[in-house]
Design a protein around this nucleic acid. Structure first.
Lengths: 220, 220
DNA sequence: TGGTTTGAAAAAATCGATTTTACGGAAATT
DNA sequence: AATTTCCGTAAAATCGATTTTTTCAAACCA
């Protein structure tokens, strides 16, 4: 997770409970479709109602929760059609972003891509907690596109990744595909440093669509 | 404005103050860069601190406000680079959306496009409040893309329109360009009903980039 | 019996008071 | 004279109590 992000959320109860709830939602700690009992959240996360409700409002605003007036908050359901929507948009937006990232990326970006790829590969083994790998994986994809010079594109892509992770982390482990996906991460680094736009776009699309296959079983 | 939207926001103080603040922010009631005094907002909008802070949190989550921990909320500045970013993304996303809208739109969609175009044209005259025209204009563009079958694309486009309006509504009136833009709305209806994908994509891009010209003076 | 009304319990939303933190100028130190 | 420290004011953030709304089951009526 990026330092600014931690910094930004760490100084207030509202920020802390937002980050904690977000993490738990992405990890499937709450059932899809489940209604959140505000009173028990208050106890579990050790905060008052005001910061808690602020966090819930923010999560609803970015689509990690649904809010019905006077009826509280609930976890959105998972459905095939939405997953397909998310994947197709990811392909389009990340395709645009990677092209621009290759165009604008400087040598600092190159070394960050290399470093993020290395950290991700190193964490692939057995002895590393899954949560750590997830963070490094998220960060790898973020760094890869970070030099695209479009703040709004990055914002939307980040939001789509969050949504996608809700699906992927619910799906059963698939070791064979995981192996292929990990190999693709290494190839992405190589193609990025080589500034091979055509091939990296193709590979990125294959990568996203393969992730889709992995995530698909999470829908009902 | 769509019925669901009104319905959704109208039942709670948090929802009402969110809608009201959003409207005022889009209309430039608050200076770009200005820090919002929460206490006076409480008086102006006649609500307590809890629903007010929920509304502010939501607005920050969608980028209509910036939040610094322990330092309250402030209105984001307007800058050329961000406007360019927003416009380029609008061209890409709305281009994708209009193609899909033509593909999936049925006869109900056709009549909605026709109706929205008619209402917009009728409100073009002198005797109609600007706020009404703005709503009809927003709705026209929303209806045009509504049949694209991608909820996330529509969500992002809506967000970009909000941001873009912050700029456009600050810019001085430009009657000549306004006339051209209004004519384009009529052509968009014609091309949509004719399902002319190539030409409507070109026109939509011209329309967006011309709006950009109109909005540009709002920066600095 | 099927459907509607009612009322108590539960949950959500809101409020006003309290606590915590940032801000800005004056005093003090180097 | 410039920088740092201190302290009072103002603002933001949080809390717990209160109000409002929903829920659901039992009672009631047709």
């Amino acid at each position: 997770m990026s330092e600014e992000f931690v910094q930004k959320e760490a100084n207030s109860n509202a920020g802390r409970v937002f980050a904690a709830l977000r993490e738990d939602l992405l990890n499937g700690q709450y059932q899809a479709g489940e209604k959140l009992a505000i009173a028990s959240l208050r106890d579990n996360y050790q905060v008052g109602l005001s910061p808690l409700r602020e966090a819930l409002s923010r999560l609803a605003a970015v689509g990690l929760l649904e809010q019905e007036a006077q009826r509280g908050f609930r976890v959105p359901k998972l459905c095939r059609e939405e997953l397909q929507d998310i994947v197709d948009l990811r392909v389009e937006l990340e395709g645009m972003a990677i092209s621009r990232a290759l165009r604008y990326g400087d040598s600092t970006w190159e070394s960050e891509v290399l470093a993020a790829g290395h950290r991700l590969k190193r964490a692939d083994g057995e002895g590393v907690p899954l949560a750590d790998w997830e963070h490094l994986h998220t960060q790898f994809h973020a760094v890869l596109l970070s030099s695209c010079q479009s703040a709004w594109m990055l914002k939307f892509i980040r939001q789509l990744h969050e949504q996608f992770d809700r699906y992927r982390r619910q799906a059963p482990r698939n070791l064979a595909m995981r192996k292929v996906l990990n190999a693709q991460h290494e190839d992405l680094v190589t193609l990025a440093l080589a500034r091979n736009e055509v091939e990296i776009r193709q590979l990125l699309e294959r990568h996203i669509r393969l992730s889709h296959e992995v995530a698909l079983p999470s829908c009902s």
